[in-house]
């Protein structure tokens, strides 16, 4: 009798409400306004809101995982999480290793930022960039001396303390920092490199890619993606 009761309980637990598939969303958590860890120790930012909305539309149960930028692709392919949603530009090199969804953020310019009043030639100076970014690749081929850092924050600190003459990164990341620096920092150049930003997935994960693409397309169609972009990047931001 006991066995039957136990079996029923187990069956009840297992059969319960149909559980949505759990998807682990990997992000860097150090790149505001794309993604950052807020003071409540939660992942916050444009991609947090976007990701939660995409998961709701795709009927997925999403949890957020923070991982260093350096190892964000290796840890995706070895299965520690299922997506990369970390302001990652879609490039041909990355596409050889992982797959990307449709863009959820249009191409936006990268910027050079230096201390105000400094006359910097970005093609010969010492330029800081984050390791493994398209900006680091661009600096390396521009003739400037590249200094790489593991986190975006360290690239800014390098300019402030004189270790580098300028920093090269996404304009969306740099602009709030420049605006709040009280004229300490200034934008000295702007170039469009790289494509839009998409969600990274394992190449073998075609089903998840299809679900996310459908969700992204539906957010583009009803305008909610543009609203979200304007909320986090300002009214001047590129939209779809």
């Amino acid at each position: 009798m006991k066995k039957i009761i136990l079996a029923t309980i187990f069956a009840g637990v297992l059969a319960g409400p149909a559980l949505a598939e759990t998807v682990r969303m990997g992000t860097e958590g150090a790149y505001p306004p794309y993604n950052f860890i807020n003071d409540k120790n939660e992942v916050d930012g444009f991609e947090r809101e976007l990701g939660d909305e995409l998961c709701r539309r795709a009927n997925l149960d999403c949890v957020w995982v923070v991982n260093d930028w350096d190892s964000i692709i290796p840890n995706l392919v070895s299965g520690n999480y299922d997506t990369i949603i970390a302001g990652m530009s879609i490039t041909a090199e990355r596409d050889e290793v992982i797959d990307f969804t449709h863009e959820y953020y249009p191409p936006s310019p990268s910027m050079y930022v230096a201390l105000s009043g400094n006359n910097v030639d970005v093609n010969t100076a010492v330029v800081a960039a984050q390791t493994g970014t398209i900006q680091a690749g661009h600096v390396a081929s521009s003739g400037a001396t590249l200094v790489e850092f593991a986190s975006p924050d360290e690239t800014i600190a390098a300019v402030r303390n004189g270790e580098a003459d300028a920093v090269f990164a996404d304009g969306d990341y740099l602009m709030p920092i420049v605006e709040e620096s009280g004229n300490e920092l200034a934008v000295i150049g702007e170039i469009g490199i790289g494509g839009g930003v998409g969600m990274g997935l394992r190449e073998s994960d075609g089903a998840l890619k299809a679900k996310m693409n459908t969700a992204i397309d539906s957010m583009k169609a009803d305008g909610s993606l543009n609203t979200l972009i304007k909320k986090w990047f300002g009214d001047g931001a590129q939209t779809f």
């Binding site: 150090a30 306004p33 860890i37 986190s151 924050d153 600190a157 709030p176 920092i177 709040e180």
Partner: peptide
Amino acid sequence: RELGGAKTSAFTYPHPD
């Protein structure tokens, strides 16, 4: 490293490096 890094007003408690 995470707490010490400079924080813009996207955070509740902005501060320099």
